[in-house]
Design a binder for these strands. Structure first.
Length: 486
RNA sequence: GGGCUGGUAGCUCAGUUGGCAGAGCAGCGGACUUUUAAUCCGAAGGCCGUGGGUUCGAGACCCACCCGGCCCA
């Protein structure tokens, strides 16, 4: 590695930096820099104003003209030009400042705001201080950082140089804030439940296992927080939610990441209808936070998130998109239909898995507009209440945008006896690796009485993908994990 | 796990039929008092992902492996 400065120069550069910017440091965007003379920009342009400004940020461009130079300074609010000249700074200060100044350096500068002949908002620098010397160069100023691997491994450079990446993570923050605000408005209380759990549950997934030394036993990183949030319904909190990381020790692909962010919300004495309203309100708030309206153009396509969204029953969807009626067809016929479509399915599979495979490959890709898929066959969903009008189905919906599942909601099962039976059936189920252990502590809580409730899970990463037009879930996760470079 | 595809200078990328390793930007030296991707002159900068193989000769061809990307499972 070739450093930018000799050791001696580096020591000089290091001698200068001190502290950060003052509390009254204006942002680098144009309006702020003009602020001292906001009412008289002509005076500012003439350099007649007395007020001095201090700015601080990263140098992203330098244009050396001899005894005068220009530098572009960027901070979180925008960019402003520094005008450096030996007339103002003094010949020796000017030349020594320019000697150590590089693109990438963090500096603070003070001087008079003005506009150049071409109208560029600038600061006529009187003092320039090195705040942090960049020993390595920034990626190419036009091309930015393109190598996808480097963009993941050095995300700070990606964000620093690629505008789309920077805006995407700002949008993510705005989305999460909007979700919180909307839940707050609906009277939900945010809680924190264990990340490390002695028994994992609330879903069907392979957990990460870790050792809890102080308790002398293995623990699991949560695959869901559902069973703890339900304990809080037993406790008497009627509207609770948590936004947290869940961990599933499974594959990585375009829409799956082992460490992902989930929003779960539970509302006592609500049913699926309540969840339907809630999820539409949440997504509408998120879309509005990013796009200013519930109708948005995402990736060149117009998507309307304005509630109410279309609702389609599971059976009807399968009929419409695959011509299959799950009420009349047996496992063998479903498997055959799957094979006809090139799917690798086996009639010996559990019916739920057959149905799920068909839905995933045939129906879900067609659900591009925001859609609520409802009335799931009971065998696919062991934790939901059955529909009152037809016990073959359960009160559940998933919702889809762009063919991608964004979330899931149930009318939650609150009968402790039924729940125990279903959990035990699941625990002794044929797919041992995916079956979850029975959480006796959770069942004990249920036996004390959990109010009937609606529950909602929303994949935050995927929502951000949809709203920011990201093709891959890693594009919305700041620091995705990669294999070691060997 | 399978198919396709990529890894060359700090960054973005060329590299022809197998024949001296290239450009732009960044960096370095110099000129330049209002630039906006400043301009101009000059000199540098390489484990061509790794390891084998073929060949007089490999960045290129063959094999294996490592790290990515896309698609499929």
């Amino acid at each position: 590695m070739r450093w930018r400065l000799s050791t001696r120069e580096l020591l000089t550069a290091r001698a200068a930096p001190r502290g950060g910017r003052g509390a009254d440091t204006p942002d680098a965007d144009d309006s702020e820099a003009d602020a001292p003379d906001a009412n008289d920009s002509e005076a500012a342009a003439r350099g007649g104003g007395e007020a001095l400004v201090d700015v601080a940020g990263r140098i992203v461009g330098v244009r050396r003209m001899g005894r005068t130079s220009f530098a572009t300074l960027r901070d979180a609010s925008g960019e402003i030009q520094l005008f450096l000249t030996d007339k103002v700074m003094g010949a020796s200060a000017y030349s020594s400042a320019l000697e150590v100044l590089d693109v990438g350096d963090l500096v603070s500068a003070g001087g008079q705001p003005f506009r150049t002949r071409s109208g560029e908002p600038s600061v006529r620098v009187e003092r320039l201080r090195m705040a942090a010397k960049a020993l390595r160069p920034l990626p190419d100023k036009w091309g930015g950082l393109q190598d996808p691997e480097a963009r993941f491994r050095q995300r700070y450079l990606d964000i620093l140089t690629n505008e789309d990446a920077r805006r995407r993570f700002e949008s993510r923050s705005a989305i999460v804030a909007a979700l919180r605000a909307e839940l707050d408005e609906h009277g939900f209380m945010e809680v924190e439940t264990p990340t490390l759990q002695p028994v994992y549950g609330g879903g069907s997934a392979t957990p990460f296992v870790t050792s809890y030394d102080a308790l002398h036993r293995d623990y699991y990183l949560r695959i869901a927080d559902e069973l703890y949030l339900k304990r809080l319904l037993v406790a008497g909190y009627e509207r609770v939610f948590e936004i947290c990381k869940d961990f599933r020790n499974e594959g990585i692909d375009r829409t799956h990441c082992p460490e992902f962010t989930m929003l779960e919300a539970y509302q006592a004495f609500a049913d699926l209808g309540g969840m339907r309203e809630l999820v539409q309100a949440l997504v509408a708030a998120a879309v509005t936070a990013v796009h200013g309206s519930t109708e948005a153009t995402i990736g060149g396509r117009r998507v309307d998130f304005t509630p109410p969204w279309p609702r389609v029953a599971y059976r009807e969807a399968l009929l419409e998109h695959a011509g299959l009626d799950l009420e009349t067809l047996g496992d063998a016929e479903l498997a055959a239909a799957g094979r006809d479509r090139g799917l690798r399915v086996d009639a010996a599979w559990p019916r739920a898995k057959l149905l799920d495979t068909l839905m995933q490959h045939v129906v879900e890709p067609a659900l591009t507009a925001p859609t609520l898929l409802e009335r799931y066959p009971a065998e696919t969903t062991p934790l939901a209440k059955r529909c009152e009008d037809d016990p073959r189905y359960v009160d559940r919906f998933e919702f889809f945008v762009d063919g991608m599942e964004l979330g899931n909601a149930y009318t939650e099962l609150n009968d402790p006896i039924d729940q125990r039976a279903r959990l035990q059936a699941q625990a002794s189920g044929r797919e041992g690796s995916e079956a979850m252990p029975v959480d006796e502590d959770f069942l004990l809580a249920l036996e004390h009485g959990m109010p009937p409730a609606g529950g909602l899970g929303l994949g935050v990463d995927r929502l951000v993908m949809v709203l920011t037009g990201a093709a891959n879930i890693r594009d919305v996760i700041l620091f995705p994990q990669l294999r070691d470079r060997s």
